[in-house]
Design a protein around this nucleic acid. Structure first.
Lengths: 221, 221
DNA sequence: ACAAAAGTGTTTTCTGTACACCCATGG
DNA sequence: CCATGGGTGTACAGAAAACACTTTTGT
């Protein structure tokens, strides 16, 4: 006799907007945890792969169909009473998104992660694990660009790092680091036009996934 | 209607023995995959936490009750046909163990990971993910000591690194790095006695979990 | 001309690497 | 005394940090 358990996929979708690292959450309109903030999630279908389920929930529940969101598995949460109604195992996925127009879905919104002090179920724990994963990955991968639109400037990318890490970075050294890193950025040839200041070159994401040597955040705390 | 799925916990238990990074595996004695190497695993009980299940399987199935094994969640594998009989979701755990006496269990043995070219189910994929996680974690954590007995020398620890990474390290620079790292090692005051050579100081694991700055393996390939 | 932001050069400091050398033991 | 492995000192190279400075736009 093999025990079976309902399995859900929950998404920690993060973006950078209004100078804050923010998560995509919705206000529950049903018990339990009525009116608490909650991650988007849903039960996995019987013949569905885990990444497929994550993409489906991103479209159907999170209201971001077709958006350029980087998705990766985060962790699985399984202690028996995390849902008071019945035992549910939850496979969490982390999503990194550019600053998209707010989701169409009712009750869905981007909220700064620092403001999400109470959430439904163990969703705050899951969200914090996702935030820590994102912070760590900026150190040694080129994933920071996943928070940027398709074309962006070095300063845009630096602001992403500064907001995610919550600390200022030297613009000059940051510029050198990311432009010298093999395969991180590709010049488009275009430049921005803004009011005041020299126009900045526009870049696209390069093919490199890893940043070597890494950009360490922890030296000066 | 909520679909339920059987959930198993599978263990990638690694150790360093006979100059080789080795995994704890058993030869299957039932179809499917009769006589193929397989990770130890088992179904999760209905009221059991995931870490509790991992420890239970380490005792009951892997045959290592009470052993000082570092266990951490690795990843969850869920594509529908990974078990040909029925869909099973598998939460994999990574275990790092010192060179223990071989398990008492029948069919259980330590096998060099390089020799495990074909395995049951997707267990080779899972094992390789565990090996890569272990290799990466040696870079920026003090987990290498989990492969050592309670008391060990700097050279013991260096051999762990060399075997896990498959590359020689400079003994002098390695010594400086790990002894200078805050909280990595604690002197016991004892020294080894061996045939030939100056006796080495014995150390225990220190309180630090992270190694900062990290010891990068990838600079010279 | 001036402000503002982009981008470059230069100096200092730190850390990793390579390797010469000394230390403590067994035989 | 010598072999063997443990442990230290030192010089060099590369990267990070700090910051002066030049470039290119809008007003």
């Amino acid at each position: 006799m093999v025990p079976s358990i309902p399995v859900s996929v929950d998404l920690v979708v993060l973006t950078v907007r209004n100078q804050a690292l923010s998560a995509l959450v919705w206000r529950r309109d049903n018990p339990p945890f009525l009116r608490r903030w909650s991650l988007s999630g849903g039960f996995i279908q019987l013949d569905e792969d885990l990444p497929a389920a994550a993409h489906r929930i991103l479209s159907e529940r999170a209201g971001l169909p077709g958006a350029p969101v980087h998705l990766e598995q985060l962790q699985t949460y399984g202690y028996p009473d995390r849902d008071p109604r019945q035992r549910v195992l939850s496979v969490a996925y982390l999503g990194l998104a550019p600053d998209l127009p707010a989701s169409e879905k009712a009750h869905m919104s981007w909220q700064p992660v620092d403001s999400l002090l109470v959430m439904a179920f163990d969703h705050r724990r899951i969200m914090l694990d996702g935030v820590e994963r994102a912070r760590a990955k900026l150190e040694y991968t080129s994933l920071g660009a996943a928070f940027c639109p398709p074309e962006f400037t070095v300063a845009d990318l630096r602001r992403v790092y500064e907001i995610v890490w919550g600390r200022p970075l030297d613009p000059r050294n940051f510029h050198r680091k990311v432009t010298k890193a093999e395969g991180f950025l590709v010049e488009t040839g275009e430049t921005t036009t803004r009011d005041g200041g020299r126009p900045a070159k526009l870049y696209r994401r390069g093919p490199a996934e890893l940043l070597h040597p890494p950009m360490l955040r922890s030296l000066k705390e």
